[in-house]
């Protein structure tokens, strides 16, 4: 019971958030945060627990987004149906891919995921008749208010985390970590490593695809470069996983919060701080810096990863004790 207390309190707080905070800007950021909890948890399952690092999460995200978008575009079926279908579409992409590529180990698998994403991105761009090509897909949003989207995102974040927590504490979880630690040893212990890697990938792809469909519904617009983006989706997913702590259940949630905040800091030029300084000083140099910083979030991500790996190699959740000790030195110094 005590073990479930923290998540339940957290869930309750998140549930009342849109009732308390009426500002649409913060609601928007929280929807993004919840979406990244789903994606980060999924990436963490296949990469953090199972040790099969994916550089191509956007392949599953984009598949889910396009499944929902195309459903609505071609058949006039609400893209909300695409939530489940998006997950299934991503699994349909992931399983044959895993079947072939899990024969490769380590960096080869990671590179193959990268290739998968590129193949899908180009396919979506080329198949104009079906996908709309580079023009993308535009659908009518179902709601004007952000609140319904918020609760759907919250439900998906809670469901994805709960399902993954359940899996990693049961037999498959032990098998995933065994595969990560030593695949040959795992085989000798009766673990069908190929099957369990596929299982891990299927669950991860499913949730990533669901997140993609959520994105389609919420944003109302996708194109190949947005949903199959290497840096905005695939690398962001890796960062969410690493910053929070790989192989921990709550790591991706912390990582998602940090990364969405950092991303927004850069996108908004530190909430307009640099733009303000530029206007205040009238200096063109400061204005130039402001513009550069706004566009430099990828660089900022890179620096953040280096810092995290150097200072907190196990992520914020994995190195929590280290962080706590660093801040409580006055008490322990006696």
């Amino acid at each position: 019971m005590k073990k479930n207390l923290v998540p339940l309190v957290l869930l309750a707080l998140l549930a009342v958030f849109p009732l308390v905070v009426k500002d649409n800007y913060y609601r928007h950021l929280m929807i993004l945060f919840l979406m990244w909890v789903v994606i980060g948890s999924a990436w963490n399952l296949i990469a953090g627990y199972t040790g099969q690092v994916s550089f191509g999460d956007a392949a599953f995200f984009g598949s889910g987004a396009y499944a929902a978008g195309l459903l609505s575009h071609h058949f006039g079926i609400s893209a909300w149906w695409g939530l489940a279908l998006g997950g299934v579409a991503a699994v349909a992409v992931g399983l044959p891919f895993g079947w072939i590529c899990f024969r490769m180990r380590g960096a080869y698998f990671a590179l193959a995921t990268l290739a998968l994403n590129e193949v899908l991105r180009h396919s979506a761009a080329i198949a104009e008749g079906f996908t709309g090509g580079m023009v993308g897909i535009l659908i009518m949003p179902s709601f004007v208010s952000k609140v319904p989207y918020y609760y759907v995102a919250l439900a998906l974040a809670a469901a994805s985390m709960a399902s993954i927590r359940w899996i990693v504490h049961a037999k498959p979880g032990y098998y995933f970590v065994s595969i990560r630690e030593d695949q040959d040893a795992a085989e000798s212990l009766g673990i069908n490593t190929h099957f369990y890697k596929m299982l891990s990938l299927a669950v991860a792809a499913f949730w990533t695809g669901v997140a993609g469909s959520l994105y389609m519904n919420y944003m109302g617009f996708i194109d190949p470069d947005v949903v199959f983006s290497l840096h905005d989706i695939s690398i962001m997913a890796i960062l969410v996983g690493i910053v929070g702590g790989v192989g921990t259940v709550y790591g991706p949630m912390v990582g998602a919060f940090v990364m969405v905040t950092v991303q927004e800091l850069f996108r908004s030029g530190f909430f307009g701080l640099f733009a303000f300084l530029g206007r205040a000083t009238g200096s063109s140099a400061v204005e130039a810096v402001a513009k550069t910083i706004t566009g430099a979030h990828v660089l900022g991500f890179g620096i953040l990863v280096v810092v995290v790996i150097l200072v907190l190699p196990n992520g914020i959740v994995g190195d929590w004790r280290k962080i706590r000790n660093a801040f409580s030195w006055t008490k322990t110094a006696t």
């Binding site: 032990y174 098998y175 065994s178 630690e181 030593d182 795992a186 212990l189 009766g190 673990i191």
Partner: peptide
């Protein structure tokens, strides 16, 4: 070939799952 970042108990639990299904 130890499963390095798992405890001794978890190493052996992973093996035991080849014969039983519940935790």
């Amino acid at each position: 070939k130890p499963l390095g970042r798992m405890s001794v108990l978890d190493n052996v639990i992973a093996a035991a799952y080849s014969r039983v299904n519940t935790h």
